[in-house]
Amino acid sequence: MIARGVWQLEQFGRFVGFVALTLAVLPRAVVERFGEVLWQFEQVAVKSLPIVLGAGTSVGLVTWLQTHRLLVANGAESALPSFLAVAVVVEIGPVLAGVLVASRMGAGLAAELGSMRLNEEIEARIVLGADPVPSLVAPRAIACALAVPLLTVLIDASALLGALVGEVTAGKLSPLLFWRDSLVFLRLSDVIPATLKTAVFGLLVGLIGCWTGLNADRSTEAVGRAATLGVVRATLAVFAANVILVPCIQLATEALGLGLL
């Protein structure tokens, strides 16, 4: 029991070292392996487009439907856009983007690196002098970190669009009024940190996916397990990071006096 706890602690220590190493080589990797970064970015961002847009529109529309019913019952229908925009832009959009990327890339990266390890491709790279961290992990991590904020913007936009579709179909507000109202409670000090924090989500997803794949056992089953584990770990990491980041951001805004913006 204790041995297992110690082992897990050891694994965590290895992971921290892995993260530190990756962060250290990150800037160099961007410059030296830009093609690889771009390729991975395409994998993460462009190929996530359908799921992101679909999820965003669906969430916006459904949020509108549920909130609309409640607010109409209380005669506060016109307050809907402002509440909905705050909910979507400040919290739902970023978390949804993080979770979607975690499920998609957590599995993908773990499986990819796991099968590389199964094929002894990693060892071959090491022998050829290409360390896996700068050559494989860093481009993937940075691509994820860059892609998720962009996906967040897309989710926000598509969710607002979905809500607008609901409003135009069944509501009373005109699109222009909807747009102007939805901006009422938004502050730059909320919107910018909320969007930028998703870069951390992306980075965590990339790191955890790669770590899980690199540490998989050498068997086909293990690759499958690694994929599942990658999704679970990445998603949990996104939620945990959100919990930690939100108070930190609020404290930071307060301390810097940016809450007035």
């Binding site: 832009v89 904020p149 962009l150 913007v153 897309l154 926000d156 936009a157 747009w179 102007r180 901006l183 009422v184 938004l186 502050r187 730059l188 919107v191 910018i192 969007t195 913006l261």
Partner: peptide
């Protein structure tokens, strides 16, 4: 650009 537009709108509103 989309994000920038959104930010600009938010900034305009405030």
């Amino acid at each position: 650009a989309l994000g920038g537009f959104g930010l600009y709108q938010v900034a305009t509103r405030r």
